[in-house]
Design a protein around this nucleic acid. Structure first.
Lengths: 266, 266
DNA sequence: GTCTACATTGCACATATTGCAACGCAAGCG
DNA sequence: CGCTTGCGTTGCAATATGTGCAATGTAGAC
């Protein structure tokens, strides 16, 4: 389709994985060294890659800047960061923040458990997450205006990843109703049998759900019931983030200070 | 040099800034629409850009993933994140984390003050920072082995950004000695006259300084003396992060541990 | 000193990329 | 309704663009 661009992309990918010498770059592309050189020089001029002192090429700062530009414009991430990290510390589970962007739901932050870094989850910031087979996906879906929801689901071909996947419109719709009633969602190994999640919605100033925060654990660490014990803390965190975005919770029970509806217990 | 790759990069850049229609893309490149289309399709296949429902192109998750891969491999960032956010909350100033990468010093994290978001600082994650006209730059420089320091400074052409810039080897060397004596650095508007910083070094398990954390404010918010009042908290934070990286403080006035005979003068 | 191994430059060739023109498709409007 | 307008898409021929080769430059090993 566009050969040289493909090659450039390939080199970017490789250089992100490990430092790349020119000869190595030429080899992986199957081209002459001079060709690889010119591609790398072009990428370097945009700081997409950077030359190390050793003459190898590694991912450059230009790319990082760009993605920060894209992610950073989502102020949500800034506002949420500290809360998510506190939540991680207190629950000791991995915490995710996902947002609806265009027509997919993307992880925009992830806080790993520093202790259990042996078991890294496959999720990654920037990656899209299943819209119907994840706690965050279902949470956002549940609170979307129905026409939006239909738009997102229309191109979806349901796939039954595991026994618990909601793999058709009917059962998914029922699940979404349940989520709206509870105010939170779970993922009972619906995408990967051994991965459990609970998620809660995050609202913007208009009250619209635009994102979701989740706590994740693999089954050997905690089962779903154990995860649910963190629900009050998760919901509190999600509320705090919503408040920072300008959300005013609907009519606090105590009507004297609507500003500070951060509630329940702390 | 490599025309089509340049064009592709240009489109990536633009799409990061705001959604791009095909016609718009063709216009900014000054090429035919079909050409722009093919470039965008190629980028889309690598998920460097993504088509929105409206048919416009925006930055895709592939790029974000890549940069996260690069940033994430710096475990430092993960370890530091929570501490930096706590520091930000307590001082209410903007907090930066910068790391020596290759031969430049790059911001790898930034915590904005949510309150004063009116005054956004020009710094950005992924962007290189002046090596001699910034608190973090000077901090890292100060503790670098001298041959490394020379290597980094050799290509530098000094530029006097403001009245306070250390714009020659002599005065910079004196400043670095001062920094080593104090254990922290300041930036008294040395790059931008109205931007003040204090910075502290972060050490890895071998005791080597690999990064620096800083607190920043613009002059109208706080002058340098006011910033300095946060020094104890900043130094504490830097130490905490160092500890998470496996650093064992030389602690003890007990002089029996020859392992850490560095610092002071080298 | 010569020898490798590697990066880099200049140039002729041909391939991949380009622009064009025609087409499809939807929206706007008399 | 049917015309127009604006947009994205496809096929194809021309050539500008990117390519490989061979020669040169550079650094380190022996």
């Amino acid at each position: 389709m566009a050969q040289s661009i493909r090659r450039a992309i390939d080199l970017i990918r490789r250089s992100a994985e490990h430092p790349l010498s020119l000869t190595e770059a030429a080899d992986v592309l199957g081209v002459h060294k001079s060709t690889a050189l010119r591609i790398l020089q072009t990428l370097e001029s945009a700081r997409f890659v950077r030359r190390t002192g050793a003459g190898t090429y590694v991912l450059g700062s230009g790319l990082i800047e760009l993605s920060e530009l894209a992610l950073g414009s989502m102020d949500l991430r800034q506002f949420a960061a500290a809360h998510l990290r506190a939540l991680q510390r207190e629950t000791s589970h991995t915490v995710h923040l996902a947002q609806l962007t265009g027509d997919e739901i993307i992880y925009i932050d992830k806080v790993d458990s520093p202790a259990f870094d042996a078991v890294k989850l496959p999720s990654r910031v920037g990656r899209a997450v299943s819209i119907y087979a994840s706690a965050v996906g279902k949470t956002i879906l549940a609170y979307l205006p129905s026409e939006e929801r239909d738009r997102l689901l229309s191109p979806v071909v349901f796939e039954r990843f595991t026994d618990t996947t909601f793999a058709d419109h009917e059962s998914l719709d029922a699940e979404l109703v349940r989520i709206r009633e509870l105010g939170w969602a779970t993922d009972n190994g619906e995408h990967d049998a051994y991965v459990m999640c609970v998620a809660a919605p995050i609202r913007d100033s208009r009250g619209q759900v635009i994102a979701a925060a989740s706590i994740t654990a693999i089954e050997v660490i905690a089962n779903l019931d154990q995860l649910k014990s963190n629900l009050p803390r998760l919901l509190e965190t999600a509320n705090q983030i919503s408040c920072e975005l300008g959300y005013t919770p609907p009519s606090a029970p105590s009507p004297d200070d609507p500003e500070d509806g951060r509630s329940i217990d702390e």
